[in-house]
Nucleic acid binder design. Structure first.
Lengths: 202, 202
DNA sequence: GATGAAATCATAAATCG
DNA sequence: CGATTTATGATTTCATC
């Protein structure tokens, strides 16, 4: 797990709010020189903490006003690769989350209208060995925005997993939805300055 | 619904792949001048098609290796605002999708480990009038990345459409977190609402 | 109404201390 | 890490179709 200091977290927060910010602007906000900021951002990318930069799009404005989540159940023990393959057949599928437990997967779908959604679901049902689906129509979306990427804060306890570094990722594909600036994203029990990396902020 | 031509879609695709691309680079790729590209991107922002630019972060690298979706059920008829409020109490909640039907909402959660996730869910259960929850642990995530924002593809048939084959292609942040940012300080341009624009595809 | 070209200003990238 | 220099890109203006 990368060891980042407060400035690195501040940079992540700034880039999260606006990925097109200039280094100059960020430098001013965090109190470092432009060169230092660039070096840090480059490092964050090398570390894989920042995986990329993307534009957020309001699909509804492009004519794709329907958003839904469909739970998929497969027969037998379908391997993850199989699940992803089948769900990928439809271009309307935006994301696929393979899960442990009852539904075997949860897929995020974007469609133009109900009829279109129906077709997508039918396609999914026919692909591979899907035994059942359950669809949730999304009415409204709220995504955390005020946030800065969470700071590591001390691990709560030796319990579950530890590793799993792959590259998970929640994600609500953009949606013109509402955005509320509320929650803080500081951890409740958080405390300790987790930063392990000595980095004089000056 | 905004009327965009092929070049606009190409720009959306390019910015989706890498939001920090320079106008010069995009200009070269789409075959227009830098000025023209800037004008179009500014317009896409004014239209609200592009809602912002954000950095995609690998939370696992920050020590948040657990990702889960929790379905929430509320007693009575909890209004959307109430649902969002309660789910927002936990900073670990990344996104909230209020849905029509059985679960009243689906929330995306990020946690350090199982124990931590447990705490978050407990918090949600206690907040507001949540009557039940069901959690899906995310094992793997796949998000559409090869794509360009879906093109409206002409509603080919009577009712809605049938051939959804056009050239859609949703796209999800390659793998990052919930997205939602908004302001960009670059690309200001915004000024007057530019009314519809029937434009020659050049 | 939209574009391209050129001039000006801002920012990024590279180098050096 | 900061400062300076140099290269590149962003913006605005203006003339053209």
């Amino acid at each position: 797990m990368a060891d980042l200091d407060d400035i690195d977290h501040a940079l992540l927060r700034l880039l999260r709010q606006d990925a097109r910010r200039t280094f100059s602007e960020m430098a001013e906000k965090v109190g470092l020189s432009v060169a230092a900021v660039k070096r840090r951002v480059d490092r964050l990318r090398e570390l894989g903490v920042i995986t990329g930069f993307t534009a957020q799009i309001d699909y509804a404005k492009l004519g794709w006003g329907i958003e839904a989540f469909t739970e998929l159940r497969y027969s037998g023990s379908a391997p993850v690769s199989e699940i992803i393959r089948t769900a990928t057949v439809a271009p309307e599928v935006q994301a696929i989350y393979t899960t442990a437990g009852d539904p075997d997967a949860l897929v995020s779908i974007r469609a133009r209208d109900m009829r279109h959604l129906q077709q997508v679901i039918d396609t999914l049902r026919r692909a591979g060995n899907v035994t059942g689906t359950k669809t949730l129509m999304v009415m409204d979306v709220w995504t955390r925005s005020d946030v800065d990427p969470m700071t590591p804060t001390r691990p709560s306890a030796p319990s579950g997993q530890s590793g799993q570094s792959g590259s998970p990722g929640p994600s609500g594909p953009t949606r013109g939805g509402p955005t509320r600036g509320s929650g803080t994203n500081r951890l409740p029990g958080a405390s300790g300055p987790s930063s392990t990396r000595p980095r004089p902020a000056s």
